[in-house]
């Protein structure tokens, strides 16, 4: 059977990610990788998933979202609670199964919130999504700051602004979650990246993906072709929220303590920076930018005073590389990117 060009491209991108994983895993097991860098492996996976999923909203469906960290934080806390409940109430000891189930719970909760925001906002024309997601990120952080969760035997207790609840405290308001079961692993993070790429790339190269991009490129023409624009914008937005929730759950269970304050506006903007630097609509660029800029502060620790200077230089380099026409043409060959603002490759 002759494979389609997009299928071949997808296989190549999967291959590159798998090779990168094998290299990292070998470096870890042979002890070549420094300890500090080893601790960065899960955050790298998390931020790659965050960047790729945000790119689905910003690049592929053409809507600006400024609250992606909000979905991540929902995933973090619902994942941590789910994990503790599965262990405490159901006695599920297997860490891998517990991790995966918690990630599914995290994704589901984030998806529900995504739908709740998307249903009213995506019906409107204009940049309302940016404003509402910005507010959502702040509101969810402040609400989480006031929420207390505890597990009393099999029962889950929730209270608002009142720390005195029975049982062992899981989430302690502004102090966040403490003594989290650190069950997240790098291989699972890698699998989450593959899952994200699988979902996003297959979505783009399907009937639904074409409808999403049609709605982005020319709303009036898309509607004249019978495409329900709101429905397809929702599809992209909720899918991205689910993926961010799953990444959040993984992130939560890789840290001993997490507080809601971590997921403020800055984090949403950081992920947006990855997307913009990697090239809007360019999935491959998002992966590189997220990976590079997440490890960079750690790698530059040795340079002490010059750290921020070098960080700035690398930012500019990433921007130049991902927006250079020849490099873009190369990326287009590697990853199908029928994205917006694609001025480079004329022929397809």
């Amino acid at each position: 059977m002759k494979l389609k060009k997009s299928t071949v491209n997808n296989l190549i991108s999967f291959g590159i990610v798998i090779i990168a994983f094998i290299i990292c895993q070998t470096m870890i097991s042979t002890g070549v990788m420094k300890r500090s860098l080893r601790g960065q492996m899960i955050p790298i996976c998390v931020y790659i998933v965050m960047a790729v999923s945000l790119n689905l909203v910003v690049g592929i469906s053409g809507e600006l979202s400024l609250g992606h960290a909000g979905f991540m934080s929902i995933g973090v806390f619902s994942g941590i609670i789910a994990s503790a409940w599965l262990k405490g109430a159901l006695g599920l000891e297997n860490e891998l199964i517990r991790l995966i189930l918690s990630m599914i719970v995290g994704g589901a909760f984030a998806g529900v919130f995504g739908a709740l925001i998307g249903i009213p906002v995506l019906r409107l024309r204009g940049d309302y999504l940016a404003i509402v997601t910005l507010a959502f990120g702040e509101i969810i952080r402040n609400v989480l700051n006031c929420l207390y969760f505890s597990l009393d035997g099999r029962h889950l207790h929730v209270s608002f602004n009142n720390p005195s609840i029975p049982g062992t405290i899981l989430v302690n308001g502004p102090n966040g979650a403490k003594d989290v079961d650190k069950i997240a692993t790098f291989p699972v993070g890698f699998v989450l990246i593959l899952f994200t790429l699988f979902v996003v790339l297959n979505l783009i190269n399907s009937r639904s993906g074409r409808a999403i991009m049609a709605a982005r490129d020319n709303r009036i023409a898309a509607e004249a072709m019978g495409i329900n624009v709101t429905k397809y914008k929702m599809m992209a937005f909720v899918t991205a929220a689910v993926l961010a929730g799953m990444a959040g759950a993984l992130y939560g269970m890789s840290m001993a303590t997490v507080t809601a304050a971590k997921f403020k506006f800055d984090t949403s903007i950081l992920v947006l920076v990855f997307v913009v630097l990697g090239g809007i609509g360019n999935i491959w660029g998002s992966i590189i930018a997220a990976a590079l800029l997440t490890v960079l502060p750690e790698l530059l620790r040795a340079f002490a005073d010059y750290r921020m200077l070098i960080y700035a230089i690398v930012l500019i380099l990433v921007m130049l590389i991902t927006n250079n026409p020849t490099m873009r043409a190369l990326f287009t060959k590697l990853v199908p990117r029928r994205g917006a603002g694609q001025k480079g490759g004329e022929a397809l």
């Binding site: 399907s206 009937r207 074409r210 409808a211 490129d217 020319n218 023409a221 495409i227 694609q342």
Partner: peptide
Amino acid sequence: RLFDNMTVEDNVRIGLHNQIKYGMFTGIC
């Protein structure tokens, strides 16, 4: 008002959106 960045074929496929259908899940999986 064409979808300039898409191929000629994809433009026509968007016209076929409601004629030849399959769902999002079918597409992703």
